[in-house]
Design a protein around this nucleic acid. Structure first.
Length: 488
RNA sequence: GUAGAUAUAGCUCAGCUGGUUAGAGCGCCGGAUUGUGAUUCCGGAGGUCGUGGGUUCGAGCCCCAUUAUUUACCCCA
């Protein structure tokens, strides 16, 4: 006999787990809808051409590819057999073979399919277009703590506007969901690709930009010494590394850090990368820093102002972290990441602005910004912190016991009556021993049991048992239905 | 892809320097109670010790291989 199993990194969810997951989905869905996002769904399968090249080399390797249907090795036409994969292809390796045998893949995230959707439906969409999407995604990653090969993401994105109000509302939604789930000890980290680029420029633009970002993103994990070591290996100079830590170790709150970085950039002679918005008034030539305008720093300041004006109060949970450098290469503006404190778990949410994501699908110059919740990680955090509301997972309120053929016949109309009254009810399907039927109700956590055996029927009544209290009372059918429909 | 750990009953795990018939808790089944769960008491079933080799008089235990699971790295929700 074959032992049943499921693929690595996938899970079954039983009724109790699904109930808890639905709770998470519900909080997220309500929040997204409150902010005006509309749900869409996209196919599990995308053409590989849509997916490849969007997530970097690492990402391409983590894509699940789907083998072409039929005989993917040869093409047979009028008895003539042509090999689809040649010896040449095989000699060249997987890169040459793959496109010949697989043209579809499982979606890797929800952002790229969304960009594809926007590009395809541009004519019918009203911009700015706000959508949310809650679907599973797949990554051929090696599973470990908080990391699965199949997991659910809940994305909210808006395309077609540059407004920083979107960024501010992302913070509002993140906070609302986490508060709603009871995960109140969280930190929303925010940074800006522009700030990272300015830091790179402040170091004299030596070495590779991505090497720098990858290294400083690990600062809180491997510490200053670890980052220094990694940067030296990547060919950065001691002087550059010193400058880097002068910039990164600026203390203070959100606004203070912005100020200090601004001063740091000016001192380092970083070229302003943007125009001051609004009317161009003549400025005081004597003060250089008043003229210095850096898009990253200024947008971060604007987001903070918008949050304040929106009545956001949890600024102690919002941290401007100039070391946050979050992977996905398509981000160009603000970037976000959310950590739950006191839990050994990676980020539960992340996102950012991408100025030209739909460009890859023939729709250039459309700015988008969005973020994603990882439901499975939220679940793991809630479980670890024991924050799930108590509940049995069953929705059934009452179980009708079955005694014999007569009680079955009498039970069916009663069952219909209960359901019509809005009471989730079930009738035990067999005339089993009462002990067994009681155990069934007990194990499922059904709070009431309705007994209508020969004795009760003779008296024209039913017996209602409260399973938790262990008490029974004899009632008329109408009274029992009334009690059950009220005792919600 | 790299490195480590683990694999014994349905589940969680014991199992001594290698030595008779491999144990516990929980769960499951039956009974005490032929109209009453959770609680209590009594009884019972269930394991070719992941798989394949090897060492040994003898292997759950030691060695090799293999598969699966898991943790960390890379990267990420």
């Amino acid at each position: 006999m074959e032992k049943p199993s499921i693929p690595q990194g996938t899970r079954d969810f039983g009724p109790a787990q699904v109930a808890r997951r639905q709770h998470i989905f519900g909080v997220i869905r309500r929040t997204f809808e409150q902010f005006g996002y509309a749900p869409i769904e996209t196919p599990t399968l995308e053409n590989l051409s849509v997916l490849t090249g969007k997530y970097g080399d690492e990402g391409d390797q983590l894509l699940f590819k789907v083998l072409n249907s039929g005989n993917f090795l040869v093409k047979e036409r009028r008895g003539e057999i042509t090999p689809l994969v040649t010896a040449d292809d095989l000699a060249q390796g997987p890169r040459a073979v793959l496109p010949k045998i697989a043209e579809k893949g499982l979606r890797y995230d929800l952002t790229v399919p969304f960009a594809r959707y926007v590009a395809m439906n541009r004519a019918t969409l009203t911009f700015p277009f706000k959508r949310y999407q809650m679907q599973p995604v797949w990554r051929a990653d090696r599973p470990q703590r908080g990391r699965y090969r199949e997991f659910w993401q809940c994305d909210a994105d808006v395309v077609g506007t540059d407004s920083l109000l979107c960024e501010a509302e992302i913070v509002l939604m993140m906070a609302q969901v986490l508060n709603g789930l009871g995960l109140v000890d969280f930190t929303i980290k925010i940074n800006h690709r522009g700030v990272l680029r300015n830091i790179y420029q402040a170091l004299g633009s030596e070495g590779k930009e991505t090497d720098l970002f990858v290294a400083i993103d690990k600062l809180d994990k491997i510490g200053r010494d670890g980052v220094t070591k990694e940067l030296l290996e990547k060919g950065f100079s001691d002087a550059a590394i010193d400058t880097l830590f002068e910039l990164l170790t600026v203390g203070g709150g959100y606004a203070k850090k912005l100020q200090r970085l601004l001063a740091g950039f000016v001192t380092a002679g970083v070229e302003p990368d943007s125009q001051r918005p609004g009317p161009q008034e003549p400025t005081d030539e004597a003060d250089d820093s008043a003229d210095a305008y850096y898009r990253g720093l200024n947008e971060l300041a604007a987001v903070r102002d918008l949050l304040q004006a929106s009545g956001f109060t949890q600024f102690n949970r919002l941290e401007f972290d100039p070391t946050l450098a979050r992977g996905l290469s398509y981000y160009t503006g603000c970037i976000f990441e959310v950590k739950i404190n006191n839990v050994a778990m990676g980020s539960v949410s992340g996102g950012g602005r991408y100025d030209n994501l739909t460009g890859a699908f023939g729709l250039p110059d459309v700015s988008g910004v969005g973020f994603s919740f990882g439901v499975d990680r939220l679940y793991d955090c809630l479980e670890e912190l024991e924050l799930f509301p108590a509940g049995t997972g069953t929705l059934t309120r009452v179980l009708l016991a079955q005694f014999d053929a007569a009680s079955l016949a009498a039970g069916l109309p009663l069952l219909a009556q209960l359901r019509a009254a809005g009471v989730p009810a079930e009738l035990y399907p067999d005339a089993a021993k009462l002990k067994k039927q009681f155990q069934y109700a007990d194990q499922k956590g059904i709070p009431y049991l309705l007994l209508a055996g020969p004795d009760e029927r003779a008296a024209g009544q039913v017996k209602l048992r409260d399973m938790r209290a262990g008490q029974e009372q004899l009632l008329s059918v109408a009274e029992a239905v009334a009690v059950l429909s009220q005792a919600q």
